[in-house]
Simulated assay, not measured.
Amino acid sequence: MESNGISLCYEAIGDAADPVMLLIMGVGEQLIAWPDGFCEILAGHGFRVIRFDNRDVGWSDWFDEAGDVDLAGLAAGDLSTVRYGLSDMVADTVGLLAALDVSRAHVVGVSMGGGIAQQMAIENPELVASLASIMATTSDGKAGGSSIDNAAALLPQPGADREVAIAADVALFRLIGSPGFETSDAELIRRATAKVGRAYHPAGTLRQIAANATAPDRTERLRTLETPTVVIHGDSDPLVELSGGRATAEAIPGAELLVVQGMGHDLPAGAWKLIVDAIVANAAKA
């Protein structure tokens, strides 16, 4: 689907006549990171669920011609290799809705996708019927920090072969996943194998990391929102700590905060019903 001058890959689940629930994924993750079962539960509540690959991942357009990111330079304050920002990704998302002839959607974002969803509500409030921000923060730099000491474990490995890439993804989600919910090694391997088999694009992930890391603080603009909002965060998230969710909920007038006990930086199957119920209840306020 053409959006904002680029091609985005999307999938729709549910009745085409139902209100749209748009799902926006986080850094480096493809649309399949929204579990089928999770999407089907949402659709069962009377929504047409749309999940898609952000730019630079999966089957959407890649931005390799823009050049690589110098992460060391970025850490030192050199922004010259930041290739695009979250507002560009918001424009992609808005373009996707326009291409699908959707004038208004319930928007759900995870991690960086939560930041995109927040920014979308700020820039295009008329498009966002309700907002669910999951395991995200306001980009103020004072909340939602990481407790992970080994930052290298969070980065993809350019040039890695298939087995190394799969093993790295499994290790990543063992590191950032939910200690309060059991996920078997077999399930983590299945997910990682599906991701790598579908599309493995470390350079795009690094460009997304740069976009997310340099996003401006949204706090003051979030205070202007009138969008029904639920903020969902795990109390055991080591990548974006719970303070990020609390800061988001405090910034948005009337926002509700759901803290999921034992949830880390993933969507564990044991928490799907709780999360979906909160999203659906919030959407009903629109």
Rank of each mutant, 00 (worst) to 15 (best):
R207V: 08
I32P: 02
E163R: 02
Q30L: 12
A211Y: 04
G26L: 07
A255V: 00
G5F: 08
V90Y: 05
A171G: 04
A75W: 03
P125T: 12
Q157L: 14
I134V: 15
M135R: 01
E123K: 05
A33V: 10
A16D: 12
T248A: 14
E123L: 15
A91H: 07
C39E: 11
P238Q: 02
G73Q: 13
K195V: 07
E220C: 00
A117I: 00
D15I: 01
A98T: 09
G67Y: 09
P125N: 10
I41R: 14
A153E: 12
L74H: 11
D18E: 13
A132V: 14
T138V: 03
S139Q: 14
E250S: 12
V27T: 15
V69N: 07
P253A: 08
E29P: 00
S3T: 08
A167N: 08
L267P: 03
I122Y: 06
A194W: 00
S3N: 01
G95E: 03
P238N: 00
L172C: 08
T214N: 07
D18N: 12
G14H: 10
A153T: 03
H233M: 11
I279K: 05
A283D: 07
R198K: 13
L8A: 04
V276M: 07
L22V: 03
I134K: 01
G115M: 15
